[in-house]
Nucleic acid binder design. Sequence first.
DNA 1: GTGTCAATTGACATCGTGTCAAGCAAAAGG
DNA 2: CCTTTTGCTTGACACGATGTCAATTGACAC
Lengths: 196, 196
Amino acid sequence: MSSPNPDTRKRILQATADLLTEGGGTGVRMSDIAKRAGISRQAVYLHFANRADLLIATTFYVDELKDSDARLAPSRAAKTGSERLDAFIEAWAGYLPEIYPIGRALIDMSPTDEEARSAWAQRMQDMREGCEAAINALKRDGDLAPGMTAPQATDLLWTLLLLPNWEHLTQVCGWSQKQYLKHITATARRLFVMGA
Amino acid sequence: MSSPNPDTRKRILQATADLLTEGGGTGVRMSDIAKRAGISRQAVYLHFANRADLLIATTFYVDELKDSDARLAPSRAAKTGSERLDAFIEAWAGYLPEIYPIGRALIDMSPTDEEARSAWAQRMQDMREGCEAAINALKRDGDLAPGMTAPQATDLLWTLLLLPNWEHLTQVCGWSQKQYLKHITATARRLFVMGA
DNA sequence: GTGTCAATTGACATCGTGTCAAGCAAAAGG
DNA sequence: CCTTTTGCTTGACACGATGTCAATTGACAC
């Protein structure tokens, strides 16, 4: 539970993030993680209570590494509403491939693990609030497309960005990350930005 | 692999579908299925080679039970384009809660199981083609919103309907099935139907 | 040197999947 | 009526993954 060697702990977290990203969130064993981190399987349990605990810690680790400004506070990014929206979408589109496999593995765990589920739900909530801020900024600048309320637009943008969306378009349907970004950006512009 | 008693086979399939629906697609063991079907755990393997085989068969079983006309051939349903679109969305929204948990369990299996993955991808493809047919019918009737091409609209509708979308909105975010249907229907109408 | 800390090793319990051999009850066939 | 076949049961087992535990090593500090 506690952290004997902070450096080893970081190596475990990095190994976990790497392996999950490579494997799409499935089929990663504790022994794989230990091997990649250069330690024994049992030593992982000196740093993390169990698999769920490790995965949750990994989400925070990945968060730390990422510039989260454009993602969480889109109202401060760029100038025009359209640019802000683009920056917001791009920030999430770059974050998704790193965070989603971890969330995927987290949800794959026992469905009764409330801690694991809510840790993931928190990130969904973050995204929801980011969407809200981005749309509100658009509206404040008078750039929101007519005939659409802010709550409607927020829900819709959120649905478009939804992380499992990304997984299925890329993993199951074979879309590239670029295709996904282009699709979402173009759709959002057309839907939400006045006169686009 | 072969089918000793067709009736027992059906009971297994029904039990699998029921349990997966109840559990959201996770945490369902072979022994649970056998118990629900009223047979021994080992007897399941007299009818299905393994877990993946059973799950794939269950998707076909669920398909058989469902009226698939509105879902797969939306161009024949209802009169006006808007009504057709509504019927199409409602058909999928009713199918999702039954089919998705099975697909979820399927994808949760070994990621190397190509057969399992492609069985699921097929259903994604079905949905994609259904979207295409629905949008094309809308365009043929001159009801497609101006400034939007049919391929764009198809992609967008597909993204909105995407099955994992449904799972996350309902399971993780706590939306009711009704909320989901309402959200998607309203969004699609506003986006695709001329003058809505 | 004596602790102490971090990680190692080997062993083990538990649980789920999948396999196998032996047995059993009922229906079908002569 | 007896035999065979069918469909399932029971009990046992191998395997792989998670998680736990006790004993041990190696390094660094006091």
